[in-house]
Design a binder for these strands. Structure first.
Lengths: 130, 130
DNA sequence: CTTGACCTTCCCATGATGGGAAGGTGTAGC
DNA sequence: GCTACACCTTCCCATCATGGGAAGGTCAAG
């Protein structure tokens, strides 16, 4: 399987596959005589793992840690859980920050007439000298 | 006022002030004979506006649009409100995405024993072949 | 044997921010 | 006036994850 098929099969773009290889997140695959990367099913499985970890918001570095645990058959599930819950806390913190911004702005907007006149509590507040 | 004092007074770092000037978000300030940037109160006011807009999650580009409206005394408040509500929607969308990740992961973690054994539904799920 | 789809590596760009180097300026204390 | 130190200037580099694209090699179908 060439990189294009591996990309198709895993949902990770060819560009990203090369990048993940370059930074050492995944193992370099075999090469054909002409230098093409050749992927087998286990490689694709790893790529899917990476894609899913990324889609759960893990950074590439955290994904590397998860990958190491995944491959380590003598891992303690406590280590995985700790990593996961720490990440959950970070996600929730970021979500809360975004929601706080949204709430503030929504509140300001609710007091804005939204017509042709220039008076606007949104700008007033952002530009207030406090 | 030199850039250090302006940074202090506005809460925007000197590095960022220079950057905002470079990309055209803010006007280049006056210069002293020796080439130092010289800021007056209106400049600091603008910088504070920028800082607040950024802290509400507006991108630098959106901040530029807000700044233009802020300076335009014949603006329609509807334009500001539209911009703000569009941004609120984006913020809420991002927050929801983060929370969905957190919920998924929290759910998986709740099924993980978190002990010395290797069995772990978190890794199982991330690595599942689906 | 040509064509087109694929592959390779290499470089550049994004967005917002910080770090740091090399060198000039301004001021306080002696 | 001289020294020390804090500040300023510009310039380059790094981050994080991703995409774009160029220049050139490979492969399979017609």
């Amino acid at each position: 399987m060439n990189i294009g098929q591996a990309a198709e099969a895993s949902g990770v773009s060819a560009k990203m596959i090369r990048y993940y290889e370059q930074i050492g997140l995944i193992e370099p695959p075999a090469r054909s005589q002409s230098g093409y990367r050749v992927y087998a099913e286990p490689n694709v499985h790893t790529l899917r793992f990476v894609r899913r970890a990324r889609s759960l918001g893990f950074s590439v570095e955290e994904t590397g840690a998860l990958l190491a645990l995944w491959r380590d058959r003598s891992r303690a599930s406590a280590d995985v859980k700790t990593l996961a819950l720490k990440h959950v806390a970070e996600l929730e913190e970021k979500a809360a920050a975004l929601q706080a911004m949204a709430a503030t702005l929504r509140h300001l907007a609710s007091h804005c007439h939204g017509d042709k006149r220039p008076d606007c509590p949104i700008l007033d507040k952002i530009g207030s000298p406090n």
